[in-house]
Simulated assay, not measured.
Amino acid sequence: MSGRPEKHSLTLKGHRTSVSLEPEFWDAFREIAAEDGLPINALAAEIDVTRGADVGLASAIRVFVLRRVRARGTKA
C-alpha cells in the first residue's frame, strides 16, 4: 500500500478536472464503474451531482467507494 495520492484527470460536464486519490481508491473506483457498466467519468459525474457544495470531489469519491465496499461485505 503506497498511501501516496495519484492525480488523474476526469471530464465532468465537458470540463477537465483533476482528482487525487490513493491508488487503492482508484482501483476500487474503476472496479465499481466496471461493475455498473459505466466509464469512470460517468460515475464521477453521478457522484459530482449528488455531493454537497462543501464536499470535495475526491472526498465524495472516497466515501462512495467506502460505502460500496461496506455494502459488499454485508451481502452473503
Score class of each variant (00 low, 15 high):
D48T: 13
F64L: 04
G52R: 10
V55N: 04
G37Y: 10
V55P: 00
T50E: 15
R68F: 01
A42P: 00
I32A: 08
I61G: 00
E46F: 05
I47P: 00
E46S: 10
G37W: 10
R68G: 01
D36T: 06
T50M: 14
A28E: 09
T50G: 15
T50L: 15
A33P: 01
R30C: 08
L66A: 09
R30K: 14
R68I: 02
T50I: 14
G52Q: 10
G52S: 15
E46K: 12
G37V: 11
S59T: 12
A53C: 11
A60R: 03
V69A: 11
R51W: 06
F29Q: 07
R62L: 08
V55G: 02
I40Q: 14
P39T: 13
I47F: 04
F64W: 04
R70F: 10
I47M: 07
G56Y: 06
V65A: 02
A58G: 04
A42V: 11
L38A: 12
L66F: 07
N41D: 15
V65Q: 01
V63D: 08
I32G: 02
G56V: 04
D48V: 12
D48P: 05
F64P: 01
A28T: 03
G37I: 13
L66G: 00
I61A: 01
R62Y: 06
F29K: 04
R62K: 11
T50N: 15
A28L: 06
A53G: 14
R68E: 12
R70H: 09
G56D: 11
G56L: 12
T50S: 15
A45C: 09
P39V: 14
D48A: 15
R51Q: 11
R68P: 00
R51S: 09
A44K: 02
D36W: 07
I32W: 03
E31K: 14
L66Y: 04
R62W: 04
V55Q: 13
A28N: 06
R68W: 02
T50A: 15
G52E: 11
I47D: 05
A44E: 02
L38K: 12
V69T: 07
G56F: 09
V69I: 10
I32D: 06
V65L: 00
E46V: 03
V63N: 04
A60I: 04
F29G: 05
E35T: 12
F29R: 08
N41Y: 08
A33L: 11
D48S: 15
R51D: 05
R51N: 07
A33C: 12
F64K: 01
A44V: 04
R67L: 11
A44G: 08
R51P: 02
A28P: 03
A60H: 03
F29E: 09
V65K: 00
E31C: 10
E35M: 09
L43K: 02
G56W: 03
A60N: 05
I32V: 13
A42T: 11
R62Q: 08
D36G: 03
A53H: 13
L38R: 11
V49C: 09
V65T: 02
D54W: 12
D48W: 10
L38Y: 03
F29S: 07
L66C: 01
G37H: 10
L57R: 05
E46T: 05
L38I: 09
D54Y: 13
L66D: 06
E35C: 05
R70N: 10
A53E: 15
S59I: 07
R51Y: 07
